[in-house]
């Protein structure tokens, strides 16, 4: 079964600060199988973004180990981590972080430029076109980023995250900066694309409705895993009930 585990965390701790120490994560141990859509929820400061950043190889844990596809991230130096992110991970952040100096197509192509170190070939450009078309930006391909709406920009960011066909998509409040309607559309799109490609996705969200669409929900409280729910298995209502309950449903976080 080990082949099916894409991501594994072993007793991950994260402590911030030198003099005044603040522990954001406590002994997190968990596994994520390939192809799963996992939603991380929890109140502000619960450590869910910290966890996502550690999984995304953007941050290093204070102790503990992170394995992605069997690769121990601790064994990679900063430049190797950067290459790893480029090759295997797709990021979608709350703020789109596109480069205003480039147009939509160029922004989508950036991961390929970084990876191949030269001008993208015809195939890659075609893929970028395809992705922009898929996210509904057929007409905006050559537009400057500043001329696009917030929703459109986030769609460009999604297309960019998908360009290198990542093994794992990490999304941190991808709709946090959008209005509800636009946010819903973007989420719908993200869910569809994920389903089509069968890519594993971990999404941090505040929004319970969004979380209920995931295969699995994990709630963090004060830096520890508290609840785990499979809404597609037990049904939405049952899942909501568990989430509203104050008690944690995971007795021993380490065994998860």
């Amino acid at each position: 079964m080990a082949d099916d585990i894409l991501l594994e965390l072993r007793q991950v701790n994260k402590v911030y600060g030198q003099l005044v120490k603040y522990q954001a994560l406590f002994d997190i141990t968990m596994k994520v199988p390939r192809g799963q859509f996992l939603a991380l929820i929890g109140p502000s400061g619960s450590g869910k973004s910290t966890l996502l950043n550690i999984v995304g190889a953007l941050d290093r844990p204070t102790s503990g180990e992170v394995f992605i596809q069997g690769v121990n991230l601790a064994s990679l130096d900063d430049d190797e981590l950067a290459r790893f992110r480029n090759q295997f991970l797709g990021f979608i952040f709350q703020f789109h972080y596109l480069l205003p100096e480039f147009n939509a197509l160029e922004n989508v192509l950036i991961p390929s430029w970084i990876a191949t170190r030269r001008k993208p070939g015809k195939e890659i450009i075609e893929r970028a076109y395809f992705l922009l078309k898929r996210v509904g930006l057929e007409k905006e391909v050559y537009k400057k980023i500043s001329l696009l709406s917030g929703g459109q920009q986030q769609r460009v960011a999604i297309a960019r995250a998908l360009l290198n066909s990542p093994t794992l998509i990490l999304a941190d409040e991808p709709t946090g900066a959008l209005d509800t309607k636009t946010g819903d559309q973007v989420l719908e799109l993200l869910a569809e694309i994920r389903k089509e490609s069968g890519t594993t996705m971990i999404m941090v969200t505040h929004n319970r409705d969004v979380a209920l669409r995931a295969d699995r929900i994990i709630e963090l409280i004060d830096g520890q895993l508290c609840k785990e729910v499979y809404p597609q298995r037990i049904g939405k209502e049952e899942a909501e009930k568990i989430l509203e309950d104050h008690a944690c449903n995971i007795e021993n976080v380490n065994t998860l």
Binding site: G56, D79, A82, N86, Q87, F91, F93, Y97, I110, R160
Partner: peptide, 11 residues
């Protein structure tokens, strides 16, 4: 963001 999506320090 360039660093996040894989640009190295050298880059």
């Amino acid at each position: 963001i360039l660093k996040a999506i894989g640009t190295t320090n050298t880059g």
